[in-house]
Design a protein around this nucleic acid. Structure first.
Lengths: 217, 217
DNA sequence: CTATGTGAACAGCTTCACAGCG
DNA sequence: CGCTGTGAAGCTGTTCACATAG
């Protein structure tokens, strides 16, 4: 076991993958799972799996492996997803709409309970989703954040507006931002940011392909 | 400069970010940019920026920095995004629809030119987007891939179907997959995979927040 | 005999610091 | 004098190999 700050970031990333895979094994009625099985399913070495899990505690049973039903709740607790949590979303464009109706969030314990947009034309409209939501103006964010105890926000606004909106979110009390705008947000150390740049991922694939065809010696 | 296989993967990831930022500087009429300016905008050290760019060639001018108008096309060429490329998408659910109408892809040189779905009820329907597209059955994929010279596909189907559909994509000639399904795809080494798991990102933020509040000693 | 947990060895990425060029 | 390009140093994450437990 180790203090949170000593745990490598990649290990935390993989922890989510372990949980995902454990749930798959659980659905397939596996009682126990070895580090090797877990690793093979995720293309990770068995040593890596053991080391990663060991950062967070002693979960395994020598000779047996990891008991699925025991490990899942432990990992959920570590990730803080053992309780449901409320999130908000800013930016009801194409992407925003899709994210609101995305079922994968609920499945993992995240409920989108409020949505905001700068455009006065959109404010007041109802957007469909797991729960129908009224689009609110940004000015209501501080109140709503307190009311629903929201800590995490999804940012799906155009690049040009992203930094400004992020600052409003932080001022409203948000402490974690999932950013879909193609910009690097400048935030203080008290705020966590995870960025998803869809175009960047395509560029990575494009590079791999051109690199491969160039390397055809 | 170095061979493609010697370049660290993180350097390639950052290369996309440099391009994004260079375009921002270009729009702001900066003629030249130093490694320090580029780094500050992206929260990366200046040494890192120089080393990364040096992996791909000698682009800088001592005493001056990097000429924006010169570097942008070079980086685009390295990433293989100096020419437009056609991509396809499989899975016309909520997320799929949003990705089809997502403008960010076009802006970076990727055109979604064909969409597929397994559901016979959906096949034949037209989906709106930059170009209206007819939803095709998977059986037409090999032909369409050849016709449009498609190399990269976006996978936006449910987790349970993802591995099977990925295999069909590869059989049809796809060599790069942008995967939105929450599973680890098992593919051969000739295929590139980039995975985006939206829930995993939220879990990372959740962990950071719980770790922070726990560390409040 | 199987499978974990872990110190030690290793590899790879990042930072440093400076030579060299404009 | 400013800023790049780069070997060398430093550091962090991964792999190895084995003691240990069931």
């Amino acid at each position: 076991m180790a203090k949170a700050e000593n745990i490598p970031a990649p290990a935390v990333r993989r922890l989510s993958l372990y949980l995902r895979q454990l749930e798959i094994f659980s659905a397939a009625d596996h009682r126990t799972v070895s580090s090797r099985q877990l690793g093979e399913a995720l293309c990770i070495s068995d040593a890596q799996v053991r080391k990663d899990l060991a950062y967070f505690g002693q979960f395994g049973h020598p000779g047996i492996g990891y008991r699925v039903a025991e490990l899942i709740p432990r990992v959920r607790h570590i990730l803080g997803t053992d309780k449901k949590s409320n999130v908000l979303l800013v930016g009801v464009g194409n992407l925003g709409r899709a994210l609101i109706s995305f079922r994968g969030f609920i499945k993992r314990g995240f409920d989108v309970v409020a949505v905001f947009d700068k455009d006065p034309e959109k404010v007041g409209a109802i957007v469909a989703g797991p729960i129908p939501l009224r689009i609110q103006p940004l000015s209501e964010m501080p109140t709503t954040v307190r009311q629903y105890a929201i800590r995490v926000g999804i940012l799906a606004v155009p690049a040009i507006a992203a930094q400004g909106v992020a600052e409003e979110m932080i001022a409203a009390g948000i402490r974690g931002i999932l950013n879909f705008a193609p910009v690097t947000l400048q935030v203080g150390p008290e705020v966590g940011v995870a960025s998803v740049d869809l175009a960047v991922h395509l560029e990575q694939l494009s590079f791999q392909l051109t690199a491969l065809s160039t390397a055809a010696t």
